[in-house]
């Protein structure tokens, strides 16, 4: 926990430095007609850097043996995060409905080990219901791919 705290705060200090750099480029002083573009970001960056430094000091002083997350916990988090990232990638390639169906199918089958029948039924009906609600009733277009094009949408 302590290491993660220090690492995060250090990263935020770095981020603050990047913002500071751009704010200086934009100009952070008084322009011809008011504060320049970098004025607000400049002071925000100063605040982030100063307080993140405070968090680092605080964390260094504190003694904690507690881990940020156990190996098992991290594994659980990754089994959710990685398929979610894959869903986004596939949405980009083949549209949201097909990607959603594939995602639901694999997640329920491989992680949940649910029966084939319920997995197939759910992974088809949920995207279909989504299609009806968004595309048909509320007229909100979602990303579509080759399958929808072939069906004429």
């Amino acid at each position: 926990m302590r290491a993660a705290d220090i690492a995060t705060a250090s990263f935020l200090m770095l981020l603050g430095a990047v913002v500071l750099f751009d704010a200086v480029r934009l100009g952070f002083r008084w322009g011809s007609d008011g504060p320049q573009s970098g004025f607000f970001p400049f002071w925000l960056a100063v605040v982030v850097i100063a307080h993140s430094a405070g968090i680092v000091v605080q964390a260094v002083r504190k003694h904690s043996t507690e881990a940020f997350a156990s190996r098992e916990q991290l594994r659980m988090v990754l089994t959710v995060a990685c398929p979610a990232a894959a869903l986004v990638l596939f949405t980009y390639l083949i549209g949201l409905y097909v990607a959603g169906a594939i995602y639901l199918f694999f997640y329920m089958r491989l992680v949940g080990r649910h029966s084939w029948a319920s997995v197939v039924a759910l992974s088809l009906s949920i995207p279909l219901a989504t299609f009806l609600v968004f595309e048909k009733w509320f007229l909100v277009p979602l990303p579509k791919g080759p399958l929808e094009a072939w069906l004429g949408y």
């Binding site: 979610a84 869903l87 949201l96 995602y103 639901l104 992680v111 080990r113 949920i126 989504t130 968004f134």
Partner: peptide, 13 residues
């Protein structure tokens, strides 16, 4: 295992 992918999907939408 059914709720999780469903929630992720509607968040993405």
């Amino acid at each position: 295992a059914i709720l999780t992918p469903f929630i992720v999907l509607i968040c993405a939408i």
